[in-house]
Design a protein around this nucleic acid. Structure first.
Ligand code: SF4
Ligand code: SF4
Lengths: 138, 138
DNA sequence: CATAAAAAGACTTATAATGTCTTTTTTGTG
DNA sequence: CACAAAAAAGACATTATAAGTCTTTTTATG
């Protein structure tokens, strides 16, 4: 239960690697993919999603590639995960009221709300800067 | 991300309903399924799993049905969820060491370990007794 | 023995995960 | 300007998991 998909795992690996590089250095997708051992075409899709919401900045054409959209200490693991996996919802009924007809009287419902908050809190405390911390800058 | 499956949701509904009945009363699967609005054949599979590990006790033949395997205050939501969904693993690498070659040096790894513990703690604090609390005994 | 009920297992269908492949757009350089 | 390098976009393919059904078997009761 509650398992991160490979897409999510790859997304994290990719952007953490990017965060471990000098901020101004443009990285090729192919290089990132090779470094974190992810199928390049798959990582491409992931980085396209990142790019759309500004988590990374992309440059096309010759000399193009990717850099972080903001400084690594301003990007949280929560953002990264939710960008590719969607919101963290331990059960349907926490998405919005009325999703389950029973939610008003259900005693289980608040437990899921609690789980959601705790997990989000944990992930929100972790920045890419922390994650990239001791990685070798090569 | 992290979404409970229907199987899990149904499992909880079913056993919470059972916990809301007088402890000695044998309940028909068909009655439980109708009460909690779950396909009876699907709930049958779920209760078979419960039965195998003793979460419920089943009686076959005429007059048969299900009762809780222990008193409701001795069964936690964690047990129920893990019985049908398997262990709570936010990422593959928390299953066992060596699942990911990077885990020794990875800074993300401990975050998932933390998530796992927090979620398990929350679910482990919730008993079926609490969940069945204010349900009408009909 | 007839009937009621759960157990077991095979099977089906729908959805989501995990990728791949091809084409298009953008951009820098000789 | 032509070309090459790189990301963007979108269609496609494959596999795995979820979700549920159906049939047959076993067990118990009266
Ligand atoms: S936990 Fe309660 S409110 Fe949420 S889906 Fe289940 S029954 Fe509905
Ligand atoms: S979080 Fe780290 S240890 Fe876990 S799977 Fe990803 S890379 Fe491996």
């Amino acid at each position: 239960m509650m398992e991160l998909t490979r897409k999510g795992e790859y997304a994290i690996r990719g952007i953490v690697f990017l965060a471990s590089r000098p901020p101004e250095q443009i990285c090729l997708l192919s290089d990132i993919a090779a470094a974190v051992d992810v199928p390049p075409t798959f990582l491409a899709k992931i980085f396209q999603q990142f790019s759309k919401i500004g988590l990374v900045k992309s440059y096309r054409g010759t000399g193009g590639g990717f850099v972080l959209g903001r400084s690594a200490d301003k990007i949280t693991l929560l953002e990264v995960v939710e960008a590719v996996e969607g919101p963290i919802v331990p059960n349907r009924c926490v998405i919005n009221k009325g999703e389950c007809a029973r939610d008003a009287t259900c005693n289980v419902h608040p437990v899921w709300v609690d789980v959601q908050h705790r997990v989000r809190d944990i992930l929100n405390e972790v920045t890419l800067q922390k994650l990239a911390g001791t990685n070798p800058p090569k």
